[in-house]
Design a protein around this nucleic acid. Structure first.
Lengths: 239, 239
DNA sequence: GAGTGGTCTAGACCACGCA
DNA sequence: GCGTGGTCTAGACCACTCT
């Protein structure tokens, strides 16, 4: 799995140092880092090398740089986190923001499929979140979200969960979601889908199976969504 | 649409020059460019600036750089072009290569929907390719592909089309596909789907609606695919 | 005007591929 | 051992933001 390059560029080492600091929460989301110059001096590298590191982290959307102002820890704000990982839109491309519907949270033993998906051990516990999301006031998406309980202590005791869970992960649990692997397929609506979403059994639904990856490259969330596909599409740009 | 920055960095100008040269086919796909040093001298900029340009174009997958060897025009080889824009896989993520099935090509007048999708004028003609693709020897995907006829002269006279059209676009028509906007939805199989794909009417299919964008930022292809979703998923990684 | 990131330069040395 | 891209440095100047 892990190569041993035998040669480890300086900027790579500095990169890892900064990533570690961010993961430790040395700076809060939205807060400014020291200037390029200051960081370079502090770590004993040239400004050019420091810049290379900060630019790379900006490309990974962990930092944001604004000319004349500074370098900031990227915030998984509602807006941003939503449009980055929530790809549902109206046909034609117009983005939309779902509303919150029914929601249940519980902690339970993990199942074999979950252990496989999230690299868990037998006996590990998981948090299960089941929720409905609304478009135009009507139920449109059913989601089942599974998290390793060890990483999210007490999350089941929270009064209510925000629409964008990833900002909660970041601010409350110092877990930054940096990428997600998704698999989409088309399935027929079940009786349960009919009950929740109000579509006839057999209606084609868009099923999304997502595993979210943290900055530390851990699989931290498994999410399966079933979405009405009549007025909703999954929009993505390939590069 | 187009901002006037009022200030145009040097590397941006050099970038445009190189892009233009690539689009003009000054170097063939797979061929090596002059070295960083040589290009920098030729264009009268420093090596650092030249490097910035070449790195940016590498990030856009237009070039490939190999230490010790040189900088090459990225080839839309079968392998690469396929896995870059063809996202179908087996559940679990294993990539697969479809085989070619039935195929028809014709040139005809464009319809309103096509004019809208591809930014065409009324009266512009289009090439329509209808084809079936096989997985494990069985029909699994139906595709309708629409191209502006003006950009692909004589394409309808070709004996047969390759599995990966984008390498054909690149080598024969100097059109580099650099990105694609896709919209996915779930639809019920029609009688025609039943006839071609052998699935019962009403079976959920995965429908993909793609517009492919060229290096010159033109909308060059509209492709609608209907895929069996029983043993096939659409796999994508979000960053 | 002071401070930040953004651009640009010139030059040195390192790692890789190949003959 | 030569030529290529990859890393690293030091320093200058430009553009943007805020006071």
């Amino acid at each position: 799995m892990s190569d041993t390059p035998g040669y480890r560029p300086l900027y790579r080492q500095v990169y890892d140092i900064i990533v570690r600091k961010v993961a430790q929460g040395v700076w809060r989301p939205g807060e400014a880092l020291p200037s390029e110059q200051a960081l370079a001096r502090e770590l004993g590298v040239s400004q050019g090398t420091m810049r290379k590191v900060l630019d790379a982290l900006t490309a990974e959307k962990l930092l944001e740089r604004r000319q004349g102002k500074g370098t900031f820890i990227a915030e998984n704000t509602q807006e941003r986190a939503l449009f980055r990982f929530f790809r549902m839109a109206r046909p034609g491309g117009e983005r939309l923001t779902p509303q919150r519907g029914e929601e249940t949270v519980k902690v339970r033993a993990s199942r074999a499929a979950e252990q496989a998906k999230l690299d868990l051990m037998r006996g590990d516990r998981v948090v299960e979140i089941v929720r409905t999301r609304l478009i135009d006031e009507r139920p449109a998406i059913r989601e089942i979200i599974v998290l390793p309980a060890a990483l999210f202590p007490g999350i089941e005791k929270r009064a209510s969960l925000p629409n964008t869970l990833y900002s909660l992960y970041q601010t409350e649990y110092s877990i930054n979601i940096v990428s997600a692997r998704e698999e989409l397929s088309a399935v027929a609506a079940t009786a349960e889908d009919q009950a929740v979403l109000g579509v006839p059994v057999g209606t084609p639904l868009l099923l999304t199976d997502r595993v979210a990856i943290s900055l530390q490259e851990r699989k931290v969330e498994w999410r399966v969504s079933r979405a009405r596909s009549d007025e909703l599409v999954y929009a993505v740009t390939l590069n």
